[in-house]
């Protein structure tokens, strides 16, 4: 596992970084999101969040349900600012 494995393509976060911060005691999904900006890029967590949930479950022994999911933020998909000014 020497090559970096990217888990978040929007913010270039690697699996190694995720594991390092979990090992340092930041064991909630909310902690990791704020340290690594997981889920805050253009895909809004569609790729990274399930991977990180599984990694947290593996390292802490908690279930995915206990780990939980982030608050969904509108809009569901990106909307051009110009679209809000058209009428």
């Amino acid at each position: 596992m020497s090559d970096p494995i990217i888990v978040c393509r929007c913010e270039d976060v690697t699996l190694q970084e995720v594991r390092e911060w979990i090992s340092r005691g930041y064991t909630s999904l909310e902690d990791l999101r704020r340290i690594l900006r997981l889920g805050m890029g253009p895909c809004q967590g569609r790729t990274c969040i399930p991977i990180v949930q599984r990694e947290l479950a593996r390292m802490t022994g908690k279930s995915i349900d206990e780990i939980g999911s982030p608050t969904g933020r509108p809009p569901a998909v990106g909307v051009e600012l110009g679209a809000f000014t058209s009428d």
């Binding site: 805050m40 890029g41 253009p42 809004q44 933020r73 509108p74 809009p75 990106g78 909307v79 051009e80 600012l81 110009g82 679209a83 809000f84 000014t85």
Partner: peptide
């Protein structure tokens, strides 16, 4: 969240910085 907020905000900032018209809004909190 208030649905009016992104409308008012977008009107203000696209006037000030027209290049923002093509930039996508991603998150609102």
């Amino acid at each position: 969240l208030t649905w009016k907020f992104p409308y008012i905000m977008a009107q203000k900032v696209t006037k000030l910085l027209p290049a923002l018209r093509e930039v996508r809004l991603l998150r609102h909190w």
